Amino acid sequence: MIVRLNDAAVAAFERAGLPPVSPALELVPELRKIIAAGLVRHGGALLFPHSWVVKKKYQLKIDPSHRTGHPDFTGWECELNSFHLDDVVPVRVDVSPDDEPLISEPDQLLMLRQGLKFAHEVVQLARALDAPVRCLVSVARDSGTFRFHRVRPGETWAMADLDTYTFGAPKLIEVDSGPHDLICDHGSPTTVGESIDETRASLSSYGNCRQRRRRRS
């Protein structure tokens, strides 16, 4: 498993006194339900089968041959396989003076850790189907989002440099199922391991990717 974090995510873990790869100990009930439903193949795509994610986005038959608004399967998958973490993780959403959603730093960290744990579980499901996947957890002061897609040559959702994303100061974690050479053209890994525990151990042994190195320079 290959994990990358942007500087904002690393800083959030550090402020809490946690290692950068610190998932929740267990998933909240709604996320456990999604994992329990598993993943399904659909026309070359890999999707969550549970209806509340799919029907929330499309009230029509899901047909991969009609990827309206998306140039490739990756964008289509990310649209169908995305949902708001703040809808399922018990966080408090206040309203800012500008009438915008406002989530506290501790609750943002909660979503980040739940998202990381959830990504690990999705990776395990995908491995059972022999389908490499990439998960992206994005958390900011107004919301949190999880999405994933199969890894395909020449297609990706996120930019190689996660610190490119600055609008809204998002905290980003990307989790690849591997194999380890799978992301040779998608930036350097923050840390590598077959599980969360091995990944955390790898972080201690090998250091971090250029996002972390740039932070220390």
Results as ranks from 00 to 15, higher is better:
135 C>H: 05
199 T>K: 07
83 F>V: 03
78 C>F: 03
147 R>D: 10
138 S>Q: 09
165 Y>T: 04
175 V>W: 03
131 A>T: 14
99 D>Q: 15
143 S>W: 04
133 V>M: 06
182 L>P: 03
109 L>D: 14
160 A>I: 04
198 E>V: 05
196 I>G: 14
87 D>M: 11
184 C>Y: 05
158 A>Y: 02
76 W>R: 02
89 V>P: 09
160 A>E: 13
97 P>C: 15
157 W>Y: 07
96 S>A: 14
154 G>N: 05
171 K>P: 03
195 S>D: 15
128 A>Y: 03
203 L>D: 01
129 L>Y: 05
195 S>C: 10
116 L>Q: 12
127 R>D: 11
127 R>C: 05
101 P>M: 13
172 L>C: 02
120 H>E: 15
137 V>W: 02
148 F>N: 05
94 D>C: 11
141 R>Q: 08
193 G>V: 00
191 T>P: 00
89 V>D: 13
131 A>K: 08
107 D>H: 11
158 A>P: 02
167 F>V: 09
191 T>Y: 00
105 E>H: 14
172 L>G: 03
129 L>C: 06
155 E>Q: 12
183 I>W: 11
105 E>D: 15
189 P>A: 01
79 E>M: 05
117 K>W: 10
130 D>W: 03
112 L>N: 13
183 I>V: 12
132 P>S: 03
139 V>T: 07
176 D>K: 05
80 L>D: 07
110 L>E: 15
196 I>R: 09
87 D>C: 10
159 M>A: 13
172 L>V: 00
170 P>D: 07
189 P>M: 00
175 V>P: 04
176 D>P: 05
136 L>R: 13
80 L>P: 03
104 S>A: 15
126 A>N: 01
193 G>E: 05
120 H>Q: 14
88 V>M: 09
144 G>A: 04
144 G>Y: 02
120 H>P: 10
157 W>G: 01
112 L>W: 08
95 V>S: 14
97 P>D: 15
182 L>E: 10
96 S>L: 10
148 F>L: 05
107 D>S: 07
138 S>A: 14
108 Q>D: 15
167 F>R: 12
104 S>K: 12
141 R>H: 10
203 L>A: 02
204 S>N: 04
90 P>E: 08
106 P>L: 09
99 D>F: 15
126 A>Q: 00
119 A>Q: 09
171 K>Y: 04
120 H>N: 14
124 Q>S: 08
181 D>R: 10
180 H>I: 13
146 F>P: 06
95 V>K: 14
162 L>F: 01
146 F>G: 04
153 P>G: 09
126 A>E: 02
85 L>D: 02
202 S>K: 04
125 L>Y: 01
138 S>V: 12
139 V>C: 12
99 D>I: 15
167 F>C: 06
115 G>W: 09
202 S>N: 13
198 E>D: 15
127 R>G: 11
180 H>P: 06
92 R>V: 14
109 L>N: 14
125 L>D: 01
85 L>R: 06
99 D>P: 15
133 V>C: 05
158 A>F: 01
148 F>V: 02
116 L>D: 12
105 E>T: 14
119 A>Y: 09
100 E>Y: 13
89 V>G: 10
77 E>L: 01
168 G>E: 04
85 L>E: 07
129 L>N: 04
117 K>P: 09
103 I>E: 14
87 D>V: 06
181 D>I: 07
203 L>T: 01
175 V>F: 06
170 P>A: 08
149 H>L: 01
84 H>K: 12
